[in-house]
Amino acid sequence: MPCSRTDHLLREYFSDDLSPVLRVEIEEHVTACADCAAQLQELTGAARELRGWEEIPAPRWDRHMALFRRERGVEKDRRWRLAWQWIPAAACALMLGLTLLNTSVVYQGGALEISFGSPELTAVDRRLAEFNRLQAEEREEFAGMLARFEQLRMQDLETMQAGYELLADRDYETVRSLQQLVSLVGSAGVTEW
């Protein structure tokens, strides 16, 4: 006689979360119920036969690689195109940056000069540097002139001193000559007058 509990119990028997209590209950029922025992045997037999499947090696195939390369190629191309779309935006950003930083590139004297800041300020700076350079040169020239004047002054002083000494010597000789003359005149006068 068919058992009314067979379907319910056997359905639960094959579920993942069969509790130990329910397992014992089913096993006890199956031991006592021949109909359920027979059915359980048939079902487990089917499951056993299915599990007996021997895996077949997959045939060699390389379409997945071709597919992969093709898909990657497409994707790379797409990415490349996307990168190209970014170039105008990047160029605009660069130009904006250069403008904001007042960057100027000047080719001068065989060298490329890159400077940041206002061009007017740069010109002023350049003029100031030139002025400082000229001022230093003038200062140096003035110092040279002073040195030369000092040298000339010293030479003049030396010349003046030599002249004075010469003059003094001459004066002395003149005084002596006068004294000699006086003494000579004095002695002659006494005898004649």
Binding site: I56, P57, A58, P59, H64, R72, E75
Partner: peptide, 26 residues
């Protein structure tokens, strides 16, 4: 595989192709 490694993709396929083929067979 997402970074474009052919080797990674091949390994991934080789790891599962047998199981998927048998699934398909059954």
């Amino acid at each position: 595989a997402l970074n474009g490694s052919t080797r990674a993709w091949r390994q991934l396929v080789q790891r599962y192709e047998r199981r998927v083929y048998n699934l398909g067979y059954r």
